[in-house]
Amino acid sequence: MSKEIFRLEDIGFKVDNQQILENIRLTIHKGDIVTVTGPSGGGKSTLLKLMGLLISPTSGKI
């Protein structure tokens, strides 16, 4: 198994009373190729901002 380079553990993100992301778990290993897809408003940009440490999760651990 390749080396783990990134992990999200039960990540959540909430703005005011609106839950944007909830209980997201993701592990990325060296050499992995990851694609993020989904509908408009589905939280893709929020997820990438969290992964890039541009914003902080309201729950969980990076």
Rank of each mutant, 00 (worst) to 15 (best):
Met1Gln: 07
Met1Ala: 13
Ser2Asp: 04
Lys3Trp: 02
Lys3Val: 08
Lys3Leu: 05
Glu4Leu: 07
Glu4His: 06
Glu4Pro: 13
Ile5Ser: 04
Ile5Thr: 11
Phe6Gln: 00
Phe6Glu: 01
Arg7His: 05
Leu8Ile: 14
Glu9Arg: 06
Glu9Val: 14
Glu9Phe: 13
Glu9Ile: 06
Asp10Thr: 04
Asp10Phe: 04
Asp10Ile: 07
Ile11Asn: 01
Ile11Ser: 01
Ile11Gly: 01
Gly12Asp: 14
Phe13Asp: 00
Lys14Arg: 15
Lys14Glu: 11
Lys14Met: 03
Val15Trp: 07
Asp16His: 06
Asp16Lys: 14
Asn17Trp: 06
Asn17Met: 11
Gln18Glu: 11
Gln18Val: 15
Ile20Leu: 02
Ile20Asp: 02
Ile20Asn: 00
Ile20Cys: 00
Leu21Met: 03
Glu22Lys: 02
Asn23Ile: 02
Asn23Gln: 15
Ile24Val: 13
Ile24Met: 05
Arg25Ala: 02
Arg25His: 08
Arg25Pro: 10
Leu26Ile: 00
Ile28Thr: 01
Ile28Pro: 07
Ile28Ser: 00
Ile28Gly: 05
Lys30Tyr: 12
Lys30Glu: 05
Lys30Phe: 09
Lys30Leu: 15
Gly31Trp: 07
Gly31Glu: 15
Asp32His: 06
Asp32Lys: 08
Asp32Arg: 09
Ile33Ser: 10
Ile33Gly: 08
Ile33Met: 08
Val34Trp: 14
Thr35Gly: 04
Thr35Ala: 06
Val36Cys: 09
Thr37Pro: 05
Gly38Tyr: 03
Pro39Asp: 11
Pro39Lys: 09
Pro39Phe: 04
Pro39His: 15
Pro39Asn: 12
Ser40Trp: 05
Ser40Tyr: 13
Ser40Val: 13
Gly41Pro: 01
Gly41Lys: 07
Gly42His: 02
Gly42Asn: 07
Gly43Pro: 13
Gly43Phe: 11
Lys44Asn: 13
Ser45Pro: 02
Thr46His: 12
Thr46Leu: 11
Thr46Cys: 12
Leu47Asp: 08
Leu47Met: 12
Leu48Pro: 03
Leu48Ile: 15
Leu48Gly: 06
Lys49Val: 03
Lys49Pro: 03
Leu50Cys: 04
Leu50Val: 08
Leu50Ile: 10
Met51Pro: 05
Met51Phe: 02
Gly52Glu: 14
Gly52Ser: 10
Gly52Gln: 04
Leu53Glu: 12
Leu53Trp: 14
Leu53Lys: 09
Leu53Arg: 09
Leu53Ile: 03
Leu54Pro: 15
Leu54Asn: 12
Leu54Ile: 05
Leu54Val: 08
Ile55His: 07
Ser56Ile: 09
Ser56Pro: 09
Pro57Ala: 10
Thr58Arg: 00
Ser59Val: 07
Ser59Pro: 09
Gly60Lys: 03
Lys61Asn: 08
Ile62Tyr: 07
